[in-house]
C-alpha cells in the first residue's frame, strides 16, 4: 500500500504541476500548488510508515507553511487585483523586463 500511496502522490503532484502550467487564473494556480503540496504530504505520510513519526511531523510543518503561504499569497492576489482589475496572469507580464 505504501507503493500505491507513493504512485498516487506522483500522479497527484504531476496533476498539480499540469494545473499550474496551463491555468491562467492566479487563484486556481494557487489551488494547484496546494494540490502539489498535498501530493508531497501523501508521500511523507507513506514514508513515515517506513522510517517513523518524523514524516508526520514534517507534514505538520508543511501544512503550517501552506497556511502562511495561502495568507500572504492571497493578500498579494488581492493587491494585484486592485491594480489590474483581473487575476489573469497573462496580464501581469512585467517580468518581461
Amino acid at each position: 500500500m505504501i507503493t500505491q500511496a507513493l504512485i498516487l502522490s506522483a500522479i497527484l503532484f504531476a496533476l498539480g504541476t499540469f494545473g499550474v502550467l496551463v491555468r491562467r487564473n492566479a487563484i486556481i494556480m494557487f489551488l494547484c500548488i496546494e494540490l502539489q503540496l498535498n501530493a508531497v504530504n501523501v508521500a511523507f505520510v507513506a514514508f513515515s510508515r517506513l522510517v517513523g513519526i518524523e514524516g508526520q511531523v514534517f507534514v505538520f510543518f508543511v501544512m503550517t507553511v501552506a497556511a502562511a503561504e495561502a495568507a500572504v499569497g492571497l493578500a498579494i492576489i488581492i493587491s494585484i487585483f486592485r491594480h489590474y482589475e483581473t487575476v489573469n496572469v497573462d496580464n501581469f507580464n512585467l517580468l518581461k523586463w
Binding site: 507503493t3 502522490s9 506522483a10 500522479i11 503532484f13 504531476a14 508521500a43
Partner: peptide, 21 residues
C-alpha cells in the same frame, strides 16, 4: 507540452519513488 512534461514527471516519480518497497 505541459501535459508531456507533467506526464514525464509523473512517470519518473512513480517509477523511481513509488518503486517496489
Amino acid at each position: 507540452l505541459s501535459f508531456a512534461v507533467a506526464g514525464g514527471l509523473a512517470g519518473i516519480l512513480a517509477r523511481e519513488v513509488g518503486g517496489d518497497w
